[in-house]
Simulated assay, not measured.
Amino acid sequence: MDHTPLSPRPPRQSAPSDADLRKWRRYLADERAEAAIYRDLAQRRDGEEREILLKLAEAEGRHEQHWIDLLGEHADRPVRPSARRILLRFLARCFGSVFVMALAQRAEGRSPYSSEPAATNAMAADELIHEEVIRGLATRGRARLSGSFRAAVFGANDGLVSNLALIMGIGATGVSSGFVLFSGIAGLLAGALSMGAGEYVSVRSQRELLNATKPTQISLAAAPDLDLNANELVLLYRARGMSQEAAEHRAAERLGHLDCDCDPSLSLQPPEYYENEYEEIGSGWNAAVSSFCFFAAGALVPILPYMFGLQGMAAVLVSLLLVGLALLCTGGIVGLLSGASPAKRAFRQLAIGFGAALATYLLGLAFGTSLG
Rank of each mutant, 00 (worst) to 15 (best):
I333Q: 02
L71D: 10
G284D: 15
S290D: 12
S183D: 05
T139H: 07
V201C: 12
A357C: 07
V318P: 01
R9S: 10
A296G: 12
M307N: 09
D126P: 06
S111G: 14
L87S: 11
P78W: 07
Y361S: 00
G141T: 06
E73T: 12
A223C: 08
G191A: 05
G364L: 07
E131F: 04
L320I: 12
L41G: 12
R62I: 08
A221Q: 10
I218H: 08
T120G: 15
S283K: 09
A151P: 10
S194P: 12
N231R: 08
P8G: 07
E208S: 14
P11Q: 11
E275I: 10
A314C: 05
E245T: 12
S14E: 15
E277F: 15
L54S: 01
D2T: 14
M313L: 10
V289E: 00
G298T: 03
I303N: 12
M195D: 00
A251T: 07
G174F: 04
A222D: 15
D69V: 08
L337P: 07
R50Q: 13
G141S: 04
A119W: 07
G191M: 03
L189D: 06
A102S: 15
V301R: 00
L21F: 09
A138W: 01
E31A: 05
E64C: 06
E132H: 02
H63T: 04
I170S: 03
L337M: 14
D126M: 13
P302Y: 07
F149C: 04
S111P: 02
E31W: 03
E272F: 13
L181P: 00
S162F: 11
D30C: 11
D18E: 15
P5M: 03
S338W: 02
E51T: 11
M307I: 13
F179V: 09
A252D: 13
F182Y: 12
L164G: 07
Y27G: 05
S341I: 06
A186R: 11
G72R: 00
L236P: 03
S97L: 11
D2E: 08
L258V: 10
L322G: 13
E64Y: 04
L371S: 10
S265P: 06
E272S: 14
K344E: 13
Y27I: 11
L41C: 11
G191D: 04
H66F: 05
H63A: 04
V289N: 01
D261T: 03
L322W: 10
S243K: 00
A83E: 11
Y113H: 14
D46T: 06
A212Q: 14
D126G: 09
G169W: 00
V98L: 12
V175T: 15
P271N: 06
